[in-house]
Write a protein that binds this DNA or RNA. Structure first.
Lengths: 339, 339
DNA sequence: GTGAAAGCGCTAACAA
DNA sequence: TTGTTAGCGCTTTCAC
């Protein structure tokens, strides 16, 4: 591949002049500029960004670290991040931690070597603290998205898990449900804690009994939630509704319910956090707390770039993007006659 | 951030020795190695891969260029590519062309500057040829995935669109369908052409009439396919089944059918290419030709890396991964009584 | 087993 | 408006 020197020779100028043409970083005679541009085109020259990064000490590379690339919440977020990064002149490296802090650490080390300018970070859980400290120690700016980590001051773009859970619960209670099970995510993930918190708080608010056997913890990932549902279905008194902590958990629950011959919503109502856009097209079915996932990505990248450029206030900021409750067929009024 | 020289000073050796420790690229005394490793740890040293790339003329970076990051076919493919890349010691940059050759070109130019070692390339269409030629001119190895481009010899990992379409059509015909509509993708995408071809060939095979008004072209993306369906629903004689060229097209079709009060499969059957894993959990519904998307990514990266390392045969290779037909509820026997 | 010198492709800083 | 020099952090080459 041709270098800046090849271009310089061909245009009969110095490398410095070519550099100025490429970057618009100094005065260049119109006629000279034309010659240089001509030479670049003829040689199919593309500047080597490694070399540039080495001297400029910036790569214009950001990283988006998410925990599950198959979850539509994160892919839509990724779209938002990508669009914003492009608009601001940054490239984006995607990393997928698979909800695993060890894999997350490997990626962080890779990113440190890559010299990314900043990281948009969806932590796999509270254990991510070590990894985040590593970034901070090296002076790499980061913005937390979707989940937060205790004992860490930093920029954040979060949803409102408490509020969303509360609204979903209010909806169920309004519709006559009194025995509501909660299938929550891992305790080491902040959104799981907050959603459980919202569940509990709303029950208390209505003086409803809190039955620990109705609260079951599972993974956030798609896959078999068999044992979890087994536990639930073995209860003496069965719930009339399920509040699931995210979209994949809800899918897993419904799948298991089906296996056991339960119909949603006839036999049991189901509501959850996060929408599934695809599904909504096929059959508007699940009642959900939909989060503006695309905006998570956009705001995240904007905050990150402001932090990198130093145009942000020195204080850390938190942006909260509230969910929207969408009521569909999966939740029904328990007193209404079945159609 | 500390450099190799900082480590060298701390360990009382030269930079060269540190380099040898990092890369295992030469003999180092056990005791010296320990001192160097100690120093690296104490300084939180991570080698600058830009500097390394500059001299080694390899970045160990691959790019995965796909056309739609929200399509589960591609996200699963991405997982496969990511896992394989990691295993082989490569980093992966995701790019999303959005089915747009212009955006695709911008990304290619960016990748040229980034000095990626190779590109896993799902072309936006036949117009990608220019972009691919650019890569070839610069000597960057690439592997085409999912779609091919006419007049270009290169490594490829493809599905078998003809076969999948044929099998889906056979399934419909076996179940008594005679008037089958085809909602196909853009003509400039190879898979759309092949699927249409499979549709036509199977009709001919069974001496069934080919009615051009039953063949409608639309986009591969999720979104409203209103006008397309409008055309279909205005036909004199209506089809009893629809063959949709991909998952998103099928979703769009079903959505529109619903709007017009048509039920699937009671009023009309629908089959399509590519599965939707999420959906399958909620309600095993769509009859599909499922492609092994994860393997597309794995094989693609493997081929690419072999090409980069020069361990591949000099001849270009094509891997074909056939689809699997999964029959579900969206297609029914037209003569069977409704339940 | 270890180090010194040179250079990868580019740009900052200064000089002309 | 243009060019020269030096150096970013690393590895290759060759010498010891």
């Amino acid at each position: 591949m041709p270098t800046i020197l090849d271009v310089a020779r061909k245009a009969n100028v110095s490398a410095m002049t070519v550099s100025r043409v490429i970057n618009g970083s100094g005065p260049v005679n119109e006629e000279t500029r034309r010659r240089v541009e001509q030479a670049m085109k003829e040689l199919d020259y593309y500047p080597n960004s490694n070399a540039r990064s080495l001297v400029k000490k910036e790569t214009r590379l950001l990283s988006l670290l998410i925990t599950d690339i198959t979850n539509p919440f994160y892919t839509t977020l990724a779209r938002g991040a990508e669009d914003a990064a492009k608009r601001l002149g940054y490239r984006l490296i995607f990393c997928n931690s698979d909800e695993d802090p060890a894999k997350e650490k490997e990626y962080i080390e890779m990113l440190l070597s890559t010299q990314v300018d900043g990281v948009l970070f969806a932590p796999s859980g509270d254990d991510s603290l070590k990894n985040l400290r590593l970034l901070r120690k090296q002076g790499i700016p980061f913005v937390l998205i979707d989940r937060e980590v205790p004992n860490l001051e930093c920029d954040k773009v979060l949803g409102d898990s408490m509020l969303g859970a509360h609204k979903l619960m209010e909806h169920l209670i309004e519709n006559g449900h009194r025995r509501i099970a909660c299938i929550t995510g891992p305790k080491h993930i902040s959104t799981a804690r907050d959603r459980l918190q919202g569940y509990l708080a709303t029950l208390k608010l209505h003086d409803l009994e809190i039955d620990p056997s109705m609260i079951i913890e599972t993974e956030y990932t798609l896959g078999s939630h068999q044992e979890v549902m087994q536990k639930l279905l073995e209860l003496q008194t069965l719930p009339t509704a399920i509040f699931a902590a995210n979209n994949f958990v809800a899918l897993g629950a419904i799948k298991e319910l089906r296996k056991h011959g339960w119909k949603v919503p006839e036999d049991i109502s189901v509501v959850c956090f996060d929408d599934l856009d695809l599904l909504q097209d096929l059959d508007p079915f699940l009642t959900v707390a939909k989060q503006p996932s695309y905006d998570f990505g956009v705001f995240g990248v904007q905050m990150l770039v402001e932090r990198i450029l130093g145009t942000a206030t020195s204080n850390f900021r938190t942006i909260v993007l509230p969910p929207e409750i969408i009521i569909r067929r999966s939740s029904r009024n328990i007193n209404a006659a079945l159609e």
